[in-house]
Simulated scan of single mutants.
Amino acid sequence: MNVEPSRSVLRRLRAVDWSDEGGAWRHENSRACLMREYLRRAALWADHCGAERSWPFFDLAEHVDAAVRIPAGIAAELDEVLRGVGPSSVRTTCRAAVRWAVLRTESPAGPLPDLPDPYEPLLALYERGGGFFVEEFIDLGGAMVRLGTVESNLAARPFLTLAPATLDALDAEGEITYYAKISEGYPRSSPRGIVRRRVDDGRTYDEVFTRNLRWEPTEYLRLYELGHNEVDHVAITEIEAAAFIESTTKRLTGSR
């Protein structure tokens, strides 16, 4: 049995600081995006497997190939890692992520459907500030996410940009509005650039994502409001902003 995939997930879980309240606050925007993407992916798999009643925080392997088991040695280590971790929904998904890694390499049930990895967004979320609690909303310790239903999450827009640098670029304090700079040949889907306006404690900060791959102050929005800019802009979603950041990072760094 190839235990490396499951051991790799175990190593990631072992490195999580489950009491990192500061990290949860610093990464509240990206963690909210990751949770919404997990809910969407879990809904896709639940719909495919007929497991809607088990959604959202469930052991997907049980519905795909119940015969798959975590190797005894890794299961014992996982018990140690999760000792004291709560609530049960977090422990369930951690075990499920390890079991899923086993299933991906060892399942005799045949090839998996062409659906995205269900647990990767949650693993990234845990790495960026620990777990969550489920009450009326999903409480991420810095952000609140609406649970919704399987049907509403099936219709949600995908958040496919999980690179740490992209997630870092989404994290900032205040209420944020993103804008794409558009003109002829540069539509919303492929803009000249993006800017954001943050309002925090009554102060406004305008920033542009630059070739230095970071947010830097800009006068663009203020000048536009005064009628001194010819380049137009349109409000965009956080998901669109993340896609631009990731594509720009890949283009400028040559990464894939």
Rank of each mutant, 00 (worst) to 15 (best):
P164V: 02
L170E: 05
L162T: 03
I176D: 12
V145W: 11
L160G: 12
G148Y: 04
L162S: 02
G174F: 11
G141S: 11
M144P: 00
A156G: 13
G148H: 09
N153S: 09
T161W: 14
T166P: 15
L162V: 04
T161G: 00
Y178H: 10
E175M: 02
T161D: 14
Y178E: 08
T149W: 02
F159M: 13
A156L: 14
L154H: 02
T149I: 00
V145Y: 09
T149H: 08
E151L: 03
E173R: 12
V145N: 00
P164I: 04
F159G: 01
L147M: 15
R146G: 14
L147I: 11
I176N: 08
S152N: 02
E175I: 07
A172F: 10
L154N: 11
V150E: 09
L170P: 13
E151Y: 04
N153G: 07
L167C: 13
A172S: 13
T177N: 13
G174Q: 01
V145R: 01
T177F: 01
A155S: 13
G148Q: 02
L160Y: 08
R157K: 11
V145D: 14
F159Q: 05
L140Q: 10
A169Q: 11
V145K: 03
T177W: 05
D168V: 01
D171T: 07
L162C: 10
A169S: 15
